[in-house]
Design a protein around this nucleic acid. Structure first.
Length: 802
DNA sequence: CGCTTCGGACACTCAACGCA
DNA sequence: GCGTTGAGTGTCCGAAGCGT
């Protein structure tokens, strides 16, 4: 008799071994382990092989699940199969069991037959093409128009002639793909290449290579001649139909394979779907304008009515929307609005959305909707997953987008204005995600400036466009629903240019050597002017929360870009030669960056969009402030710095885990310990030797000095920072003077103007301008005493992360 | 010392194949 | 149709690493 710790299983593939194969004691493993999941015949009796259908009831009569839960499976630990299982209970996480049945097997049959047949067919086409290439330059066939009523159309790019005839979409601003770039493209081959876009309802496929372009054309012609409808099927194998061999390989990307299983049980109750959608509209759409809400609303609500029969692509989109909605809510809101526990729901929907992508055949998808869903999912998952996951899958998303020709402007292919706009929105959100995800991992963005020509979306409201429109609408002058996104797109373009590093073994410290400091400063100034002129001067920051967010984000970004350009990490001397004045400015700018970053996350009226901003840890600013706090130990600016650092450090630190961001966090933690220790020493000294010359009281202090233990011996007037927190009056005890003409500063920083918890929004943008952005003073070599420890930080902090 | 991760051994399943 | 084979899939032991 085998010692038997396994529960008796009923049904399912692991329910019971065929009687003949019940493992005998002698078949125990070499290392003495027991055979697993083999039921004891003595206890099981004649439990025979049962079909999968029997196992569809997840629970057997003993209330146990036939399979291990997802968490145990992932952790490769024994699952007691109770609901919830002991491991999940102990970890206080939701216990989710996979659907019944095993994942479908991959075919053992080599897919040669189909491939060979296709090859043979194409060989004939190649031969016929060869006749036309004798002179080395095969003539390109004219635009192939689909016959009336034909669902398939092949659209050749409009030629350069049309492009140069003033057919500009009117949104070319300073941070659009520049004219210079476009000219380069015209001479470097983008226009010469004559890409071809094959479009069908909701699907598209892009071919740029001349050979394949011609080939697809020939094949299309042959199809017309042969009138062979089956060819359409070949071009568009039904996703998830199982006919495509690659579909069977998708499971490895997103967890284990459940491609063939239903995700029906993972949807929220049908009556709740409208609530999820309304949360999405309120919390996601304003800051991530990806969809055309009027049409998408109809699509989503229609799908909700018949959730059992939606397409696999739509399924992926629905789960992305659920996931996004839950991401934006606080744990309490999740319970009040949706009656669910946030973390558990995030895990559940993430599992479902990944499975849905696999089921939708996303690796070979030609549907825009799947890419939109993936973009939405990746943007939201950044909030909780800081591993390489987002960066890696973003690379995949870029490829998928290129395959659909999203990187080419729809107008060149005579797509409808509506479709063109949606494709532009998607592409620029992909670009932004690319920049963000790359920054997270200290690498250059994947998308190169010259690799696309998709224009910015027009500055419009959703109401201005509809699917049936024939003419492109006129862009608005003032703020629209797109304004916030357009600003982000401008910024991502600028960041891409700033972070461009020439290929080759260039040392990290001079990674941006291709651009001079003055060029970078000019670029930032141009961006600043562009944002101000084009968008911000139209914003009503006092009463429209989204406008306030836009203005605050703009200032934050400009300030951060200044910081990045001037950051000591960017200098070959690691900052040793920075003049004191520059350091002071940097210090102040950094504090304000952190303050406003925090404000964006916590301000009451804009809290619902905080999910987007919470993914942005201000590494540069934090590192610099902490390094400065190792040498600046007293004074009101130091108090102010500690106030904000104490506020964010644990929270930001808590959101990073042991992976990559965790690695970046390590040196910051070390720096924090050192800064605290220096601060404690200084406070102790001041307590012993106060400024009035008396012998001070021996103060008790803990090892974590902060604003509550500044040990000030002088009564100081209190000021309020951007977060509405109080700190002592600058200048009173030799603090740093406010720099009005220095780095971009958040004005006004005067007592009690900012009231983040009050009715009006904090006055982050009253001046309506970022102020004068001066060039850095000439660099001078100064004493580097203040930089004690900085070298260590530089060593600790992998330079590539900056 | 408890917890997590994960390589890898093992059990089980079933498509493919040979054979009668 | 049936038996055999071997590769795919699922489970989970136990070593190693990590944090407290």
């Amino acid at each position: 008799m085998v010692p038997h710790s396994e529960p008796i299983l009923e049904g399912g593939d692991f329910a019971a071994s065929p009687v003949g194969s019940v493992t005998s004691p002698s078949s125990a493993t070499q290392n003495g382990t027991q055979p697993r999941d083999s039921s004891s015949p003595g206890e099981n009796g004649p439990l025979l092989h049962q079909k999968r259908a029997n196992s569809s009831t997840a629970n057997g009569s003993n209330g146990l699940n036939p399979r291990s839960c997802i968490t145990c499976r992932k952790r490769k630990v024994k699952c007691d199969k109770r609901h919830p299982c002991s491991n999940c209970s102990k970890a206080a996480i939701e216990c989710v069991f996979p659907g019944p049945g095993r994942a479908p097997r991959r075919s053992r049959k080599p897919p040669d037959t189909e491939l060979l047949a296709r090859l043979r067919r194409l060989e004939g086409v190649v031969q016929s093409l060869g006749k036309g290439t004798d002179d080395g330059e095969e003539p390109l066939s004219p635009l192939i128009s689909a016959p009336e009523g034909d669902k398939l159309a092949i659209k050749q790019e409009e030629c350069a002639q049309k492009k140069s005839s003033g057919m500009n979409l009117g949104m070319i601003g300073a941070f659009q793909p520049s004219k210079e770039t476009k000219n380069d493209e015209q001479t470097n081959g983008m226009v010469k290449e004559f890409g071809r876009l094959v479009v069908e309802e909701g699907r598209s496929r892009y071919v740029s290579n001349k050979f394949w372009t011609s080939l697809s054309e020939e094949v299309a012609e042959m199809r017309d001649i042969l009138d062979d409808p089956t060819e359409d099927e070949d071009d568009y194998p039904s996703p998830g139909s199982g006919s495509s061999a690659s579909a069977n390989h998708l499971g490895f990307l997103f967890s284990f394979s459940s491609i063939a299983l239903s995700l029906r049980n993972y949807h929220p109750p049908v009556e709740q779907i409208a609530t999820y959608w309304s949360i999405f509209k309120s919390n996601v759409d304003p800051v991530l304008k990806l969809f055309h809400i009027p049409t998408m609303e109809h699509t989503v609500l229609t799908a909700a009515k018949d959730i059992d029969h939606i397409s696999k692509s739509m399924e992926a989109l629905m789960f992305s929307i659920y996931y996004a909605a839950v991401t934006t809510l606080s744990p309490n809101e999740c319970i009040t609005l949706l009656g669910i526990e946030k973390q558990a729901s995030l895990r559940k929907y993430r599992f479902a959305v990944e499975q849905a992508f696999a089921r939708a055949g996303f690796l070979s998808t030609q549907e825009l909707i799947v890419l939109q869903a993936l973009l939405l999912f990746l943007t939201c998952v950044r909030r909780t997953d800081d591993s390489r996951y987002v960066w890696t899958i973003t690379g995949l998303l870029i490829r998928l987008a290129q395959a659909l020709g999203i990187h080419r402007d729809g107008q060149r292919f005579n797509l409808s204005p509506f479709e063109t706009e949606l494709r532009r929105r998607l592409w620029w959100h992909i670009c932004t995600l690319d920049v963000r995800a790359s920054e997270d991992h200290g690498v250059e963005p994947t998308i190169g400036e010259a690799s696309f020509d998709t224009n910015f979306p027009l500055n419009l409201n959703d109401a201005d466009i509809h699917p049936a429109m024939k003419e492109a609408p006129k862009e608005h002058e003032g703020a629209t629903e797109l304004t916030f996104d357009l600003m982000r797109f401008s910024v991502s373009t600028a960041v891409r240019r700033l972070s461009y590093a020439p290929p080759g073994p260039t040392p990290c410290r001079i990674k941006n050597a291709s651009l001079r400091l003055e060029d970078k400063e000019k670029m930032i100034e141009e961006l600043h002017q562009h944002l101000e002129e084009k968008y911000l001067r139209h914003c009503d920051t006092a009463t429209v929360p989204l406008h306030w967010v836009a203005a605050t984000v703009a200032r934050l970004i400009i300030a951060k870009m200044w910081l990045v350009v001037h950051h000591p990490f960017q200098r070959s001397d690691a900052g040793a030669g920075l003049p004191q004045e520059t350091r002071d400015r940097l210090f102040q700018t950094c504090i304000e960056i952190i303050e406003f970053s925090r404000l964006l996350e916590t301000e009451k009226t804009t809290l619902k969009w905080g999910w987007l901003f919470r993914t942005y840890v201000q590494w540069h600013a934090l590192a610099f402030v902490l390094s400065q706090l190792c040498t600046r130990t007293l004074g009101p600016e130091v108090d102010r710095a500690w106030l904000v650092i104490d506020g964010v450090f644990d929270e930001w630190g808590g959101s990073v885990s042991s992976n990559l961001r965790g690695m970046m966090w390590k040196p910051l933690r070390k720096l924090m310990v050192k800064a605290r220790s220096e601060r404690a020493k200084a406070v102790q000294n001041r307590a012993l030797f106060p400024l009035d010359g008396s012998i001070g009281p021996i103060m008790n202090f803990n090892s974590q000095p902060g604003p509550d233990m500044n040990g000030s011996a002088v009564e100081l007037p209190m000021f309020t920072n951007a977060l509405g927190q109080s700190y002592t009056q600058p200048n009173e005890i030799g603090g740093i003077e406010r720099i009005s003409d220095g780095f971009p500063s958040f004005e006004p920083m005067v007592p009690n103007t900012a009231s983040p918890n009050g009715d009006s929004l904090p006055n982050a943008f009253d001046s309506g301008t970022f102020g004068h952005l001066p060039l850095d003073p000439p660099m001078m070599l100064e004493d580097n005493l203040n930089w004690a420890g900085w070298d260590n930080v530089v060593k600790d902090f992998d330079m590539s992360y900056i």
